[in-house]
């Protein structure tokens, strides 16, 4: 198992497409992190909002970000990443 990993790493070192993939993976992690922050800030706002219209607006946005994050996490688990 260890040798396999080592070979994969070596391969990655010489293979530019794998290097690119690594970059993409990092970017995906960065985007997911940002989305998480955005979601948190919306949730904070929601706690302090009394207006019903604003509340449902924020809830909708949170739902949207959740879906985006879910899609992003699935992508992270998939093979290409």
């Amino acid at each position: 198992m260890k040798t396999k990993k080592l070979v994969a790493k070596l391969k990655g070192f010489f293979d530019s497409s794998l290097r690119d993939n690594e970059k993409k993976r990092e970017a995906l992690k960065e985007v997911l992190e940002k989305l998480k922050h955005k979601q948190k800030s919306f949730e904070q706002k929601l706690k302090h909002t009394q207006n019903q219209g604003d509340k449902s607006e924020l809830e909708k946005k949170i739902k949207l970000i959740r879906s985006q994050r879910k899609k992003g996490l699935e992508l992270l688990k998939s093979e290409g990443y």
Partner: peptide, 18 residues
């Protein structure tokens, strides 16, 4: 923004059904 970020965001963006 950085090209990699744009590429990733395009992939995560929700489609009609989602």
């Amino acid at each position: 923004q950085r090209k990699e970020l744009t590429g990733v965001e395009r992939k995560i963006a929700l489609d009609d059904k989602e």
